[in-house]
Design a binder for these strands. Structure first.
Lengths: 203, 203
DNA sequence: GTCTATAGGTTGATAGAC
DNA sequence: GTCTATCAACCTATAGAC
């Protein structure tokens, strides 16, 4: 019996999550991961079959709880949620994430077209997106579905961007924007997106 | 004298731009590029010194004209541009881009933290961002600089997202959103962002 | 300027001992 | 389950002939 806190499989997932977030999926080699996790190189191919399967496992471990939380918050808002409640249910679980470690990973997923489309969007995100589009339609009956889908895309893009670049935002804003204050970021994005969703064509 | 339409250097830049956009900077090898460009492997190290220099050259070739056009549009709007004019000057040159070939590349740049920060943002984007922040402050005197920087970040994120994922948006929206209709996309994003910029804290 | 050839290093994945 | 050792393929970059 070893005195290690976590088992090998978890150690690999943790290390992979960290490195994928820092350097991206392609740049991170299995050797980088096993070194960081302090496990043997062959262990990754024993517990997971391939690098692609490992990527899928890393993503699923973080995305599924977030989507679960999204569904819970949307359900908790009752049968007729307000625009702000819907946006909170969609954004809060991913932005107000406990660890700053998860943010870069999520950002990488959303910013990498190939991995994203195949692994995440088609499997994890599409049902959630449909559920939220329906909620938006109910809250904004004057907006047609196409318009809602566009504005949801814009909102998801803003979210993805502050996730992906959370480390660099202070550098780019002369230290004026602090992305580590998650509740403040969330409040600002909800305000911004809610106004965007309520915009009328004529400006 | 060869019958080739373009010289080797341009052929390399074109091929690199295409492949970087499709597969990302790290995944694309110099061999991929020279094969696509139908030039010799050593040519890339002759005309550019290294892969990093090639990436910088590919980025600069597209980003500089866009930023130039942004400055021109902002100046053309006069000394007191409206919010919509500022947003148009910022978004139009990058979104209403002629070719659909450029969109993935721009998306990749904005989605890759490492290359982005070093190559693009610090060199190309920071002066433009400062110029536009000043314009926003003049148009929205009630908004403090931090708030403007956050909302500009959200807007840039939405822009980056539709650039990076322009190929996949129809797939994710059941064909309802068509990102190839650039003027329509631009109009929608300007409407969305303008409302977001005008939002008041209390919702 | 363009080519071939190759050095020197890294990668993902596996075979087989323990 | 964990290890060592290794394969075959790939990479960037360069040296040197033409």
């Amino acid at each position: 019996m070893t005195h290690r806190a976590l088992d090998t499989k978890t150690r690999i997932l943790d290390a992979a999550e960290k490195l994928f977030g820092d350097k991206g999926f392609d740049t991170t080699s299995l050797r980088n991961i096993t070194t960081e996790a302090d496990v043997n190189l062959a262990a990754v191919n024993y517990h997971f079959q391939s690098k692609d399967s490992l990527i899928a496992a890393v993503i699923a471990r973080r995305v599924e709880p977030i989507n679960q939380k999204r569904r819970e918050m949307l359900a908790a808002a009752g049968p007729d949620p307000t625009l702000k409640q819907i946006l909170m249910a969609f954004l809060s679980p991913i932005i107000a994430q406990d660890v700053s470690l998860v943010a870069p990973l999520i950002g990488r997923i959303l910013a990498t077209p190939d991995v994203c489309r195949v692994q995440l969007f088609k499997k994890h995100m599409l049902p959630v997106a449909q559920q939220f589009t329906a909620a938006f339609q109910k809250a904004l009956p004057d907006l047609n579905e196409t318009e809602i889908l566009w504005r949801l895309t814009f909102t998801a893009g803003a979210m993805a961007h502050i996730m992906a670049r959370s480390v660099h935002i202070p550098d780019l804003t002369g230290g004026k924007c602090d992305p580590t204050d998650r509740p403040a970021v969330l409040a600002r994005l909800v305000t911004f997106a809610a106004a965007g969703f309520r915009a009328t064509e004529a400006m």
